[in-house]
């Protein structure tokens, strides 16, 4: 397989990605094949190189390089694809403070965007993947980018990161899911990425109006429900899920207030993907449900 060397236009950013690692190149070709290429003369926001590291043939390692420098410790080559995607997340997480950034999956329908903040394991990526495979537009699996003072979210569509049982759940959910190479025995277990640009407008860069903030939580043991939650409590929880709320100081407070004032907030507890997707589709637009109300 030929080395990979492309300038990818991903949302508002240009990533230059180079690698000679076969499994990583194969994953990039599968998952980013439909992404627009940036002009060779375009400014490169993130210059990434994944290369092999070490000389022991029975212990193949790879390193993630950013702007010509190794950023993280070496990882086994069979985890290299996940390390690339995590590194691409890192690029946005630690830079790009022109936005209020929430750790969240973001999906959109004609009614607007739903921001789903959550800790790892909350079930946001699984739900995001299922929605994407069902006609919703995936705006991001990792970052909600909110321009301060706006009630919109900037698309940053990339592959969806699935872990452990979620991989088989999505394989069973749809035969159309396209996966990259599995990364085994990572600190998160087995990780595999799913092609995320499934919608005709996946690569559009215009900001999308926010319809709601939904805080998902996967639970096998609890009744499924979509319930309105207080905006003030949601404000603080969303700030907890932000990469740079504190860094932005007062601007972060104003940006979050502007967002939360406009977006009704909900808790979503689910264990059945079809139910969760139906609940989001039926979710009332505009004003939130009264706090005592819920859909189950």
């Amino acid at each position: 397989m030929r080395p990979y060397n492309e300038n990818l236009a991903i949302g508002p950013y240009t990533y230059r990605i180079r690698t000679t690692l076969r499994n990583v190149a194969a994953g990039l070709q599968a998952l980013y094949r439909d992404f627009p290429r940036a002009d060779a003369s375009a400014f490169v926001d993130f210059d990434i190189a994944l290369r092999s590291h070490g000389i022991l043939p029975w212990r193949k390692l790879s390193r993630f390089g950013f702007d010509g420098r190794d950023q993280f410790g070496p990882v086994p080559v069979h985890q290299a694809y996940a390390s690339l995607e995590w590194g691409m997340n890192w690029c946005v997480s630690v830079h790009c403070n022109e936005y209020l950034k929430l750790h969240a999956a973001v999906v959109a329908s004609d009614a607007g965007a739903i921001i789903m903040p959550g800790v790892p394991g909350a079930g946001k990526s699984t739900l995001c993947a299922a929605l994407g495979l069902s006609g919703w537009r995936i705006l991001s699996d990792e970052h909600a980018l909110i321009p301060p003072g706006s009630r919109q979210v900037v698309p940053l569509c990339r592959p969806v990161s699935l872990k452990n049982e979620s991989i088989d759940v999505i394989r069973s959910f749809s035969r159309d899911a396209v996966f990259g190479p599995p990364s085994l025995d990572t600190h998160k277990g087995t990780v595999q990425h799913m092609k995320g640009d499934l919608h005709p407008e996946s690569h559009a860069t215009d900001p999308v109006p926010v319809r709601a903030l939904v805080f998902p939580r996967f639970s096998r043991d609890e009744p499924q429900r979509l319930r309105a939650r207080p905006r003030t409590v949601s404000f603080v929880l969303a700030a907890y899920h932000s990469f740079n709320y504190s860094l932005l100081g007062e601007d972060g407070f104003h940006a979050m207030r502007h967002l939360v004032e406009a977006a009704p907030c909900f808790d979503l507890v689910y264990h059945d993907l079809e139910w969760a997707m139906g609940a989001l589709e039926r979710m009332p637009a505009g004003e939130a449900l009264p706090q005592s109300a819920e859909m189950s």
Partner: peptide
């Protein structure tokens, strides 16, 4: 401090401009 009040809720958000801390 900066505040976010919602008239329908019993809690409010307060931002301390000196420390940068946000309190519910």
């Amino acid at each position: 401090p900066l505040f976010y009040f919602d008239p329908n809720e019993e809690t409010s958000v307060c931002f301390n401009p000196d420390s940068g801390d946000t309190h519910l």
